[in-house]
Amino acid sequence: MPFEPSSELAAYAEKVVQRYPERRSAIMMILHALQREQGRISLEAQEWVADFLEIAPIKVREVVSFYPFYREHPVGKRHIRVCRTLSCALNGGYAVCDSFKQAFETGLDEISPDGRVTIEFAECLASCGTAPVALVDDDLHENLTPEKVRELCESIKAETPAAPRPEPAGETAE
């Protein structure tokens, strides 16, 4: 099914394209808005972006697949990105990441069983002076400890209703 942009997204795309002398330059800003609205960037949506920018769909996919913060796959309701890089690691970043994983009984790079979160490592979040840090959606959490992570996860659970994914049809049939 072809992708139908929301009126907000279509209006935003029209606005942002004016900021550049060449339409193609608007791609990253449009992809950010699209991903925020849709939760991911589907192939159908990429075709719409390509059409809008008057470029080949592969030129869109090149961009989506190159930049770590764009994704074609869905994530949990909240997106947790723990800084993996040196200053955070020296101050316990890996233990912080483990605490997030334990709290949601999930591994890295997957939607947690309760559907609430996806936990990922990110490379340097540029807040090395308050290491270790993590982004929860847009919000930066600094000077994290396993205890602070546990509190943070409790509040995420309280704010975010669980939405476990249904078992895939093939597996339940077995």
């Binding site: 900021r19 550049y20 060449e22 193609r24 990253m28 950010h32 090149e62 764009y70 490379e123």
Partner: peptide, 27 residues
């Protein structure tokens, strides 16, 4: 003056990579 947002690629700190990125391509 316009704000343009990257998408977490370190190489965009390299000025010619940044320029390619601003043109809407891989950096």
């Amino acid at each position: 003056l316009v704000v343009h947002r990257g998408a977490a690629a370190y190489i965009c700190g390299e000025e010619t990579g940044l320029i390619e990125s601003l043109e809407g391509k891989r950096a």
